[in-house]
Nucleic acid binder design. Structure first.
Lengths: 257, 257
DNA sequence: TTTTCATAGTGTTGTTTTAACACTTAACTT
DNA sequence: AAGTTAAGTGTTAAAACAACACTATGAAAA
C-alpha cells in the first residue's frame, strides 16, 4: 500500500509547493418574471482565447485566514451589495482536472504564471431578492448579469455541472424547509410563492391545495395590504413570520412540502 | 474593497507557498448490537503530547491528481479492506483555525516541520456492514476501532463537530432514500432494519406501521429463508432488491420514509 | 362604456396515508 | 415446564392528499 496511514502528514509531492488552490464558487439564484435566474459573470478573456467560454459562476480563491462561508459572503457582497443572505454550502468539487483539463487551462496558466496546480472548489448557492440587489454590473468593471437557468450557456470549467448540482440541492432543500420566500420581496403574494415552488420543483401545483397546505403551516402572516398596479384582481400580501417559524421548529414540527 | 473581482487569481499571500492543505475525513458508520458505531483511530502521540486528544476520525491529505471521492475510498479500503461502499460527501470544513487553534497544533507543527498552514477538509460519511469489514486494526500498525456514537470521546481538531454534522446528514438522507440496509448484512430481518431506522432517526417506530410502510415500497424481497441461532422465534430474511429499486426510482416514485 | 383578459380567491369529495393500539407464536434458556 | 425474547399480524379513526370549476376584481383594449 503506497499511502501512509499516519495522518496528518504531507504527501511527498506537496513538498514541491503544489498544494491545491481552494476556491469558493457561488450559484446565486434570483427569481424574476416567473423564472429562476442565476448570476453569471463575463470573464476578461485574452485575445488569444477566442475559443474559451466567456461566462462563469462568480468565485474567488479563498484568502488565507478566511473561512469558507466568509469567502462566499464576500463574493455575494461584491456582486449584489447584499449581506445577510440565505446561503448554503452544497458540495466540494475536486476532480484534479476540473480546471486543468478544461479549454480554459491555457488562459488560466497564463494569468497565474504558475505551474498548473489543481483547484478544489467549495460551492455555495444563495437565494436573493433580485429587487433588493444592486444592478450587479454597476459596481464593477466585471460584467455580471442575471441569466434564466433555462438559458445558461456553456460555462467555464465545470461550472455547468456545479449549477446542476446546485439546482438539485435547492430542490431537496425546498421540500424540507420553506426557503422559497428568500427569493421574493419581503411582502409577497401566494401566487408568487407558488410560482417559486413550481419553478424549483419543476412541477405544477394545484392552487387550492398549495394555498391550504402552505397556510396551514402557520408561518405565513397575512398583511392588511394588497398588491398594487397589477392589471387584474389584487392579491393579498403575506410575509414570512420568522418568530413563529422558529417557535414551531423548536416544537419539532415537520416542514416537508 | 480589498479583494479582487477578477477571478481566478492568486491571493498575494499564497506566493509564499501557504496554499491550504486539503484533506478528506471519513465518518465510517457501522451498526452492531443495536447501536450505531463509528470507526475511530488512535493517534500516535508524542510523549510531550500528554494533553492532546488521543482519537480522531480517519483522514488523509488528498494526493496530487487524486479525486476527492478517490481519496475517501482509499481511506475506507485501508481501514476496512472494503470497496464499493456507500459513501456521501456531506460538507467541507474550512475554518482557518480548525487545525491550527486546536490543542493539537503544536504536535501537528512538529510532525510537519512546516510553518502553520491551514487544512481544509472535505468530509464523507460511509455506511458499512461491520460483519464484512476486516477487523479494522489488524492490517495496520495504526489502531482503529468501532466506537458507539453515544460514547465518542473528545476528538482531535473539530472532529466532534464533523461527526455531528455527519449524523444530521445521514438522518436527512435516510428520510429520503432507503440507505438503511447498507448497514446490515446482505440478508436481514425487518426487526434489524427497524432498529437501524430508529437509531438513526432517534425515534421509536411502531412495528406494524414500519413493516407495512417499508414493505409497500416494493424494494425489499422476502427470501425463502429464516434467521438461525436466535433464542426466540426466527424472523424471515429479506434482501434489498436493487433492480426493482432502480426501476421504481426511474418511474419517479418517492421514497421518503 | 363595454368587453376582454389575467389572476385571485374559494370547498367538497373520494382516496390514501398515518397513528394508535394488543395479542399469539416460535425458539431458545433456565 | 415455565420464562424470556422477539416475530408476526389487522382494524380503526384521523389526517393528508389529489382532483376538480367557478366567481370576483382590476386593469387594458376595443
Amino acid at each position: 500500500m503506497a499511502h501512509s496511514h499516519s495522518w496528518p502528514q504531507r504527501p511527498k509531492s506537496s513538498e514541491a509547493g503544489l498544494n491545491p488552490h481552494v476556491s469558493v464558487d457561488c450559484v446565486i439564484f434570483g427569481f424574476d418574471e416567473g423564472e429562476l435566474k442565476v448570476l453569471l459573470i463575463e470573464r476578461n478573456l485574452q485575445k488569444t482565447d477566442h475559443e474559451s467560454r466567456k461566462f462563469s459562476l462568480p468565485g474567488n480563491l479563498v484568502d488565507d485566514n478566511e473561512d469558507l462561508d466568509t469567502s462566499a459572503k464576500r463574493i455575494l457582497k461584491e456582486l449584489t451589495n447584499l449581506e445577510n443572505i440565505y446561503m448554503e454550502q452544497f458540495f466540494a468539487f475536486g476532480d484534479p482536472n476540473r480546471v486543468k483539463s478544461s479549454s480554459d487551462a491555457q488562459w488560466l496558466n497564463a494569468v497565474r504564471e504558475l505551474p498548473t496546480a489543481r483547484v478544489i472548489t467549495v460551492a455555495y448557492y444563495s437565494l436573493v431578492k433580485i429587487a433588493d440587489s444592486e444592478p450587479a454590473a454597476a459596481s464593477f468593471a466585471r460584467k455580471a448579469f442575471w441569466c434564466p437557468v433555462s438559458e445558461v450557456p456553456a460555462l467555464a470549467f465545470d461550472h455547468n455541472q456545479i449549477l446542476d448540482k446546485a439546482r438539485q440541492s435547492l430542490k431537496i432543500k425546498l421540500r424540507m424547509q420553506p426557503v422559497g420566500f428568500e427569493l421574493l420581496p419581503e411582502k409577497f403574494t401566494l401566487g408568487q410563492l407558488q410560482r417559486v415552488y413550481e419553478t424549483i420543483l419543476g412541477t405544477s401545483l394545484d392552487k387550492r391545495n398549495f394555498r391550504r397546505k402552505i397556510l396551514n403551516k402557520g408561518f405565513l402572516k397575512a398583511l392588511p395590504e394588497k398588491q398594487k398596479g397589477v392589471p387584474h384582481k389584487r392579491a393579498l400580501l403575506y410575509e414570512f413570520d420568522k418568530v413563529t417559524y422558529d417557535r414551531l421548529s423548536s416544537e419539532q414540527f415537520n416542514f416537508d412540502f
